[in-house]
Design a protein around this nucleic acid. Structure first.
Length: 962
RNA sequence: GCGGAGGUCGCCCAGCAUGGUCAAAGGCGUAGGACUGAGGCUCCUAUCCUGCAGAGGUUCGUGGGUUCAAAUCCCACCCUCCGCACCA
């Protein structure tokens, strides 16, 4: 076992033995409750989970060290269909899938065989997940754990839905879904062989009538407004159509495919006879709106797989229609084949109904000519159609021949028009898929309208308003994500909240329906607060009647009474109520940004509905999606990294930091194996760096250098603390790890040794600041520093203004600036130096320097005024000539200083530059590998062959290099 | 299409709210040096261009504008990423 592994095992065991992360209510302490959306258990935890969850853990550990009573509970999501689907694939012997389980997930053979049982599979991944979560060092209180199929949890969900329904948030209706006729279930993206992302599209069917016959030709369109511009109907003469009785009342002519599809869309379709499309060519039909009549023409471009296979023609506005018509008009004799008079075709004139900017009367004809489209087969025809439809939709206005809709833009009138036509009984609705979708079982999918579907009515405007109130009072990390929450709240509509298959909690009032995944995971954070008691006291699910939850969560009902009916003791009821009141609401829930439009928003909606304002969520964190080596992580791409494998390879600390250093805010972090490996190595050297210091730090010194170090550490403490408070985990880690390390290195270089107590103190602060990120390593170092307690519960360092030392900072800055300047000169001159001489500014120059600082920090520094002031000073009067040169130089230097720094410089007045440089002499000699001298400009006997000293100004000693 | 987030010096990224302290932090990479038997690791130095004295020049998606002054403010444009539903 590697050393890293040993350290991890050791501290994991010690934490568990000491129950460090088990949190119980403690009125004397302020609480923080943090949560992470429970992961779905159809696979192992991966580094993507670890990224979002590590942010939670870092925050939890930080707050715990700050003295808060921190609760971080965790659970497992089993609800839904994919677990069943996965297990079926194993049962079916799907080799590709089994290979992935074996090689990517690393499932051992003896378990793999038992995956035919979905619950076994889920339990396997749950066990694995818990192990990984523990090893990565998440500071979780495991006593509150559950899975969503536990009957006790399901009682909670039943209570939740009973409550929602009583408030009228659960409604019933119909809903179109992509449907597998073989599986008899909705086919989500996960269940598809092909056609990912394809959704049902709604067509309007205009019910044209065959003249003199009681037969309807339902022509499908996305643009029902074009009914006013119709000139004919297209039928594919070679395709198969049927005449069918629909809903026992009407006779429809539709394509054979359409007849099957409509059967799934709440229509009773009885096929009476089957025939070829050519039979209809030449017949006339009537527009149900205007009662005008038009002919049916042959259109070979009509695809009967799309919608009804009947299309009405609007040649003025549809490029395809125009092209088809033009082709026919060029060869009208074709009509003879159908026994139709060619005149029928030649008489057709396009009817203009939409005025659109940039086009004349017949946009379709114009665009066909502009783009030089030859015929229906020309690929440019599709492009032209898209372009024109878009233009007409956005800027088109309906013309005078469009009835009551005249002058309206299509965008504003479309929905109204569809509704009107429906009411008039001249239209119907059909759904179809824009691209083919094939189920994993290889069956092509269709659209099915689910009737009696249960919905959560997120359209309810009162619910939306209340949800916005919740958002308004919430802290959102980062703040920029707030707009997406508001946008989502506005945009959410009815959500189908139940389905007929998969794991989950049955709807208590409607048999056969199971509450779906995203709907049973909205307020379960409240369940954590009491599940400790349910687990420990073995409360039976039967006892968890709604009144119990009403009492705990809403303080309703009589405790004695409830105790009597359920057998739960009054004490226990009281304890659960108190536990809920202590912990709730949660202070942070963090997840990836893809959950904003669904899970996280649902969570807010449901809290708004079920809890009073004092229990509304306090904070939600959103982060980017983890990338792996610059690409999205997918099992199929072969770049899937399980948490377990990352820990094994890099260790928990390096994995955590590799993730945290990637990004913060909404940016997508990028996991790079090189980085993780690099961090692993860095931590090795960090440990020996720290151990050496701890072992040798015996000298208690207090020079400017120690004061500088202490001062510097204060700034680091402040930055790390403030960053963590804003969940800026990347900034915090970068400062805590790299910036502090650089500070310590500088100190050591300057000091030339590591044996000071001050350095040990700084290192201890460092360990504490790193502890939330790399807890194992820090516990180890902490104990090696002689500390008995856990660093996990040590006090977080506090920024202390009194420990700042501006003078020490300025002295150090002086040395650094001098070094930079000197190196700059060396670079420019390319000389090989034998000797360096530094000259600090004469005392009288300080008067001038400080005066100018004061002037520039309060307002503008005018040279003339300054000169006057200086000449009044008897002390300065003799050197007015030098002053005249000096003043502009100093003013220029002063403009480069921040106002903060200026204020500090004024506060400390003059620093002893010569002494400061003298103290650094050994360091400088070492650095330059040459002789180094320092003089003050005031020194009469200085070595100064080029009279450099005269150009020295405060904070900018003159330099002479031989 | 709708909604959201972004484009910074080889790469990852900080800065932008409150314009000047920004040639722009930090990490990675690269080069040189130290250490080592050698390598890895580690440590030091450099890393936009020019410059024989601490300086100058050109940069922050593109093009305009405001201002004494813009990576930061305004306008237009181009490009990238994410979500769009019954599915976790």
């Amino acid at each position: 076992m590697s050393q890293t592994k040993q350290v991890e095992e050791k501290w994991l065991a010690l934490w568990e033995a000491a129950c460090v992360f088990e949190a119980d209510p403690n009125p004397a302490k302020q609480k923080i409750m943090v949560t992470f959306p429970f992961p779905y258990m159809n696979g192992p935890l991966h580094v993507g989970h670890a990224f979002s969850a590590s942010r939670v853990d870092v925050y939890a550990r930080f707050k715990r060290m700050q003295g808060y009573n921190v609760l971080w509970p965790w659970s497992w999501h089993w609800t839904g269909q994919p677990l069943l689907g996965a297990s079926q694939r194993v049962a079916r012997g799907d080799q590709e899938y089994i290979r992935v389980l074996r090689e990517v997930d690393g499932v051992p053979e003896e378990h793999l065989q038992k995956f035919v049982d979905p619950k076994y599979m889920a339990q396997y991944y749950t066990n694995e997940g818990k192990n990984a979560a523990k090893h990565i060092g998440f500071s979780v209180d495991w006593r509150r754990e559950f899975t969503t199929v536990w009957p006790t949890f399901q009682k909670f969900i039943e209570w939740q839905y009973k409550n929602l329904r009583e408030q009228g948030y659960v409604t019933r209706g119909t809903h179109p879904v992509v449907w597998c006729p073989k599986d008899k279930s909705p086919t989500g993206d996960h269940d598809r062989q092909s056609g990912e992302g394809v959704t049902p599209e709604q067509y309007t069917l205009i019910k044209y009538k065959l003249v003199d016959k009681n037969v309807i030709l339902p022509a499908a369109t996305f643009r029902p407004e074009t009914i006013y511009g119709i000139t004919n109907i297209w039928i594919n003469p070679d395709a198969t159509y049927v005449e069918a009785t629909v809903n026992s009342s009407e006779i429809w002519v539709i394509s054979q495919e359409a007849a099957e599809k409509l059967k799934e869309q709440e229509k009773i379709v009885v096929v009476n006879r089957v025939f070829k499309g050519r039979e209809l060519v030449g017949k006339t039909f009537e527009n149900p709106l205007t009662h005008e009549t038009f002919p049916i023409l042959p259109g070979w471009f009509i695809d009967t797989k799309v919608a009804t296979g009947i299309v009405f023609s609007v040649p003025a506005h549809a490029p395809f229609d125009w092209l088809a018509l033009r082709d026919l008009q060029l060869k009208p004799e074709v009509m003879g084949d159908f026994g139709v008079d060619p005149q029928v075709v030649l008489q057709i004139k396009p009817v203009s109904i939409i005025k659109v900017d940039g086009f004349g009367k017949y946009p379709a004809i114009e665009i066909v000519e502009q783009m030089d489209i030859k015929d229906q087969q020309d690929p440019k025809a599709n492009q032209a159609t898209k372009e024109l439809y878009k233009k007409e939709f956005h800027s088109g206005k309906l013309e005078a021949n469009c009835g009551v809709y005249v002058g309206k833009s299509i965008r504003e009138v479309k929905d109204q028009l569809i509704g009107d036509f429906g009411k008039l009984g001249i239209s119907d609705v059909m759904y179809d898929l824009a691209e083919s979708v094939v189920c994993r079982c290889m069956t092509p999918c269709v659209v099915k309208i689910l009737s009696d579907q249960w919905f959560l009515n997120y359209s309810d405007s009162k619910w939306k308003d209340k949800t916005k109130e919740v958002i308004a009072q919430m802290k959102i990390y980062p703040e920029t994500a707030r707009t997406s929450f508001y946008a989502t709240t506005d945009w959410l509509k009815e959500w189908a909240c139940a389905r007929t298959t998969g794991f989950g909690t049955p709807l208590p009032w409607s048999e056969g329906w199971i509450i779906e995944t995203l709907s049973d995971s909205t307020v379960y954070m409240a369940f954590y607060t009491i599940n400790k008691h349910i687990n420990q006291s073995n409360i039976s699910p039967e006892a968890l009647i709604p009144e119990v939850f009403d009492y705990i969560y809403h303080g309703k009902g009589n405790q004695t009474q409830i105790s009597k009916t359920t057998g739960i003791t009054g004490e226990l009821l009281e304890a659960m109520r108190k536990e809920f009141l202590y912990w709730y609401p949660f202070d942070l829930r963090n997840s990836a940004k893809e959950l904003v439009p669904n899970h996280l928003s649902f969570c807010i909606f449901h809290h708004a509905a079920l809890f009073p304002p004092e229990h509304w969520p306090k904070g939600i964190g959103v982060n980017g999606m983890l990338m792996v080596e610059g690409q999205g992580m997918h099992k199929s791409k072969g770049n899937f990294i399980t948490l377990k494998s990352a820990i094994n390879k890099y260790g928990a600390d390096a994995t955590r930091c590799g993730l945290m250093i990637g990004a913060e805010g909404m940016d997508d972090p990028d996991w790079r194996a090189d980085n993780a490996n690099d961090l692993k190595n860095k931590f090795e050297s960090l440990k020996s760096f720290v151990n050496n210091i701890i072992a040798s730090g015996k000298q208690s010194e207090n020079t400017a250098l120690e004061r500088w170090l202490q001062s510097k550490m204060q700034y680091r403490i402040r930055e790390v603390t403030e960053s963590l408070d804003e969940l800026k985990t990347r900034t915090a880690l970068q400062t805590a790890l790299f910036e502090v390390w650089n500070d310590l290195r500088w100190y050591i270089q300057r000091k030339g040794s590591i044996n000071t107590v001050a350095l040990v103190e700084a290192v201890k602060v460092w360990i504490k600041m790193l502890a939330p990120f790399a807890p194992y390593m820090c516990e180890e170092m902490w104990s090696q520093a002689g500390e008995e307690s856990f660093v996990s519960t040590a006090y977080w360092p506090k920024f202390d203004e009194n420990k700042l030392d501006f003078a020490a900072e300025e002295q150090e800055k002086l040395i650094i600036d001098m070094l930079t300047d000197t190196q700059n000169i060396l670079k420019a001159t390319k000389i090989t130096p034998k000797r360096f001489v530094f000259y600090t500014a004469a005392t009288w120059k300080w008067q001038i320097y400080l005066k100018i600082l004061e002037k520039t920090s309060t307002g503008e520094a005018k040279i003339s005024e300054l000169m006057k002031e200086f000449s009044n000073n008897t002390e300065l009067k003799p050197c007015m000539k030098d002053i005249a040169v000096l003043v502009p130089k100093i003013i220029k230097a002063a403009t480069k200083l921040s106002s903060n720094r200026k204020a500090n410089m004024i506060k400390i007045q003059k620093i002893d530059e010569k002494q400061a440089i003298q103290n650094a002499l050994n360091f400088l000699k070492d650095r330059f590998n040459a002789e180094v001298n320092v003089y003050s400009e005031d020194d009469k006997n200085r070595y100064d062959p080029k009279n450099r000293a005269s150009i020295a100004i405060p904070y900018q000693p003159a330099i002479y290099i031989e």
